[in-house]
Nucleic acid binder design. Sequence first.
DNA 1: GTCTATATTTGGATAGAC
DNA 2: GTCTATCCAAATATAGAC
Lengths: 227, 227
Amino acid sequence: MRAGRSETLRRTGRVRPADGRIRDASVRLFAQKGFQGTGIREIAAEAGVTTAALYHYVDTKEELLLDIMYGVLDPLAAAARRIVNEVDRPEARLSALVEHHVWFHATNQLATVVTDTEIRSLGSEVRADVIARRDVYEAIWRSVVADGVADGTFRVDDPRITAIAILQMCTGVAHWYRPTGPLTLTRLSRRYADLVLSMVRAARGGVPVRADTLELPSPARGLDAHV
Amino acid sequence: MRAGRSETLRRTGRVRPADGRIRDASVRLFAQKGFQGTGIREIAAEAGVTTAALYHYVDTKEELLLDIMYGVLDPLAAAARRIVNEVDRPEARLSALVEHHVWFHATNQLATVVTDTEIRSLGSEVRADVIARRDVYEAIWRSVVADGVADGTFRVDDPRITAIAILQMCTGVAHWYRPTGPLTLTRLSRRYADLVLSMVRAARGGVPVRADTLELPSPARGLDAHV
DNA sequence: GTCTATATTTGGATAGAC
DNA sequence: GTCTATCCAAATATAGAC
């Protein structure tokens, strides 16, 4: 349908490199129709090239999927490490993790949906690597929840299950969020942080901690747009 | 690999009807490899029949997927309606909805994972119908949350977003739960209900409501095994 | 870097015998 | 109800010219 090329022309006034167009087309189509449901011909057509030209930039279809997933998992893990380094208290760490995760999934919906749903389409070798990177990220969340329970800031029965539940709830934003809604992304992220602080029964000196009362560094809130 | 037939023999001592074997094979394979990633030949082989025999029972591959989804969405909606009819107060309704949803997703993991991830593989006509049935179910959750906010039992900023977040968190159980863990299903479901009651800040007379203090009819807890 | 043309395998689905 | 054999469209990927 050549939508890729004409869209590029409309936005930029000139044709962008085929490389980027192919990447954009693949993430759009994988998110919409699934990896296995998307043909290499569709990707080429959407990017405005032939299949032969596509294979000048890419070795296999799976490579496109893998690029998308690394482009999600690596920035997420980097941000989580940065947050743990820069923020001290468990409730502030958890809040910052949630706000960044939600913001990232709302601003990278296509790529995060693909990462969330297409792990089973990977070959077993690369799949193990992707799962390992995802586990690194989840382990940071688990430890933050566990730390909060250990020092009495959070009160939950099972930190491991709670961390998984929180993560799945926040990842879900990628599946339903539409930018046309009444809520700004900053407010949406804050709202999720508030839900999570309630869920873990976060409290200081017997009084519940709300997301709006926390002072977080702006980068920890995930609002630096270097993605 | 003929695992379907030999598995049947080992469990029952005789060969079950091909119809059921085909259904079981399809849900196993769709959950593991995705709908588009599963071939009609694989399903037939796993069920211990030829592709020609398979087409004696089924018209199209999509019909197999649709049967799986209806087998998930219709019982879920029926249970939700039953709960709303039999249970009065918002915190008890929400708790019962959560416990049933979690229990159902843990005891029907393959089918619920397929239902949760393969809607995009449906043709547009049937897809609209599946989405409509899912929306019916979600609307019940939304109204229960909204009722609790309206009568002051729950305190959340945005009932609609909160209901979506809760549902996605509970649906996630199908993706990680393994029956070998230390937790019984009853306790797991109760734990999720507790997380949810915390999340909506459920309280009666100023004191937080916990899942263990609620008296729910056993069917509302979702422990009647007619699935 | 991009094209036309095609090799090769696999996909869903069917015909017709038993 | 189940089989063998097969049709035909679509899949990924490549060859070789420009």
